[in-house]
């Protein structure tokens, strides 16, 4: 029961980063349909708007609007190799807590299903702050919405109708399995398994058959409870514009809070 491993960067390297690197190809094949609110957000941008997709994964959101310019970044080189094909955008390998962007230089930023992989409260707030710090500052303090805008999605604790079945009051820090099929391994089948009338010839004692070997990977998630994403945004210096719940996820759009 007791969590013996100390959560933080090393923990995430083992329980998040290395897992995505391993499952990249299979994961990507299951991630192609954009979530409607994200799609709507991206399609509503003017031509030539510039944004960042922090934790872009296989780049499924880079495919939504080819009239804006998005610099997608992800920790997984294997996923970025898949993401880079989406024109006219760019995909780079970067850590979401050490993003290589000038501060306050983007019209918009999205980070979809990413912040919930950070394993301490402080690191989650830091991740949200890193997203907000990309946004253009508002033109004046009393017009916070004139600056850049971020859209953040995280997995919800409250999802009792999903196949995972988590709900209010459950443990928020969980390990979620990813079952990787395939990885065809060649197994040698002994001659004794043959049918009786199957006359074995010399040097044909073994034959080779492919079998599907299953491997399960566990990824760390912090499941967000109601109000928690908004709290993290406020804590990180942001102002929540809109927020809601969609398909087992909490989402929010945010701008930078003007300085007092």
């Amino acid at each position: 029961m007791a969590e013996l491993e100390v959560r933080g960067e090393e923990y995430e390297a083992q329980h998040v980063h290395s897992v995505y690197e391993e499952i990249a190809s299979h994961f990507s094949s299951t991630r192609y349909k954009p979530w409607p609110i994200v799609e709507h957000f991206l399609k509503g941008l003017p031509d030539g708007a510039v944004g960042a997709d922090v934790g872009c994964g296989n780049g499924k959101y880079l495919a939504v609007n080819s009239k804006v310019f998005i610099v997608g970044s992800d920790r997984s080189t294997n996923l970025v190799q898949i993401a880079k094909s989406h024109e006219p955008h760019t995909a780079i390998v970067a850590d979401n807590l050490s993003l290589p962007h000038p501060l306050h230089s983007f019209d918009f930023a999205i980070s979809i299903a990413v912040v919930h992989h950070l394993s301490t409260p402080a690191r989650r707030v830091e991740a949200v702050k890193a997203i907000l710090d990309l946004l253009l500052r508002p033109k004046s303090n009393d017009q916070p919405q004139s600056g850049g805008r971020a859209l953040i999605y995280v997995w919800a604790l409250e999802q009792k109708d999903s196949r995972r079945g988590w709900d209010e009051g459950h443990e928020q820090d969980v390990m979620v399995p990813w079952v990787l099929k395939g990885g065809e391994k060649v197994k040698k089948e002994k001659g004794k398994k043959r049918r009786k009338d199957d006359v074995p010839k010399p040097n044909e004692e073994e034959r080779v058959v492919p079998v599907q070997e299953e491997k399960t990977f566990l990824r760390y998630y912090h499941l967000y409870k109601r109000g928690e994403l908004e709290h993290d945004i406020e804590e990180a210096g942001g102002l929540v514009v809109e927020s809601g719940y969609e398909k087992d996820n909490w989402w929010a759009t945010a701008v930078l809070r003007g300085k007092e």
Partner: peptide, 26 residues
């Protein structure tokens, strides 16, 4: 990587970002 990207990239090291010499990357 398109050259336009370089317009939006700087050093990933936090302490470099406040220095004008960190932009652009060469």
């Amino acid at each position: 990587m398109k050259l336009l990207t370089l317009n939006f990239l700087t050093c990933a090291i936090k302490t470099c970002k406040s220095s004008p010499a960190s932009f652009p990357l060469h």
